[in-house]
Design a protein around this nucleic acid. Structure first.
Lengths: 221, 221
DNA sequence: ATTACTAAGACCCGAGTAG
DNA sequence: TCTACTCGGGTCTTAGTAA
């Protein structure tokens, strides 16, 4: 993540406050200007800058604009949240709820790469069972997932083999029903609502989880 | 809390990150300038401004400055933390640990005022036992206490009687050992490490708490 | 080394106004 | 009304430099 402009952050936070849960909001530059204590002209300029940077998107209809914050824009806010929490040393265990879904076996392929496995043992303290548990996160936990995506986590180096490149990933230690596990995410933000979980245990069997089973994951951020 | 200047917040966060847990830090304007990506001159100017606003204090020795963030400065950071958490709708229950101490009976006097009691019933949903449980918060939970101080909480109006004025306070619902309670703080920041707890129950007796007893309080922020 | 003043240039803001 | 351009004025930044 490249460094954030404080004013971009500030403006996005203000817009997000106005939006609440709405993905789109009708917001004139005058109204935004009032919230930010700047003129309509400045607000207009600021909006254009944020659109240019990819943090906002806009639809104009009948001379009135509707605004939406992009994923990149939300990243700014959640990144700041994590940054501030870390500066203030507010440690956090989050509960994230979701449902077990069946993966495509890709996860198993990835995590069985030797370079990953060595690092899992060194940095997470366990050798994972050769397969991942795929958890589709409940929509109402989307914010928590975004926080996770914007957290640093435990860095796992990428590597290259003869045929292809395996990117760097990050891991978050946690537990499911008291059993040790870790959530694995690519280091470059991918906006998926599925989390891949690894564990020294075969969670599916040990916890008798079938597809669709509702589970609660605790992760340390 | 009057509105925050984004740059003040940004600078204080940067300084706090450098400080970690140290109350004082030797930090030249050049070093700060690098962290903020501004010149030494600008960093110097920014420091003077923050001192002028009461967010920083400084000792200069042999032409090198030592900086410390004041309580007012920390308030900026914790306020922002709460604001951002509320904008992102990250709900939060905090566990705060401390020890029971004996109060001066003042709490009992305050909360037995009729205007307060009516509001407690209306806004908290219970009529408190006529006395407060005073909890001295563990130093390592100071950050959580600061967060509480900078949260809005449930507003309880102040009022005046013939003899004196009772200020507005704010309440945070929570529980101790599963028993319903609320932490009460004056609305104007007072930097005390003692929390006053009210509850429909006589907590001291019900939980058999003697002075010095270690307790764990869960509060909703 | 420091901190911080001065001065000049860069940048930002908002009034006026067009579309 | 709306958005957003131009441009004059003011603020902020930094190079030079003193202490």
């Amino acid at each position: 993540m490249k460094s954030i402009d404080p004013y971009d952050y500030w403006t996005l936070k203000t817009i997000k406050r106005i939006m609440g849960k709405n993905p789109w909001i009708s917001l004139s530059s005058r109204e935004l200007g009032e919230k930010l204590s700047v003129s309509q002209q400045s607000a207009s300029r600021i909006i254009l800058k944020l659109i240019d940077k990819g943090f906002l998107q806009r639809k104009i209809k009948d001379r009135r604009q509707n605004l939406s914050i992009t994923d990149a824009g939300l990243d700014i806010l959640f990144y700041e949240m994590n940054d501030l929490a870390s500066v203030l040393e507010i440690e956090k265990t989050m509960e994230i709820r979701g449902n077990v879904i069946s993966g495509l076996g890709e996860g198993r392929y990835y995590i069985s790469r030797k370079s990953y496995i060595i690092q899992f043992q060194e940095k997470l303290g366990f050798i994972p069972f050769l397969g991942t548990l795929n958890v589709k996160i409940d929509p109402e936990n989307e914010g928590k997932l975004r926080r996770l995506r914007n957290s640093t986590g435990i860095h796992i180096d990428g590597f290259v083999t003869d045929d292809r490149t395996f990117g760097p990933v990050k891991a978050f230690l946690g537990s499911i029903e008291g059993l040790q596990c870790a959530a694995i995410l690519p280091e470059r933000s991918v906006y998926s609502d599925v989390l891949e979980i690894i564990s020294p245990f075969y969670l599916r069997e040990k916890l008798k989880l079938s597809d669709g089973a509702s589970i609660s994951l605790f992760v340390n951020i």
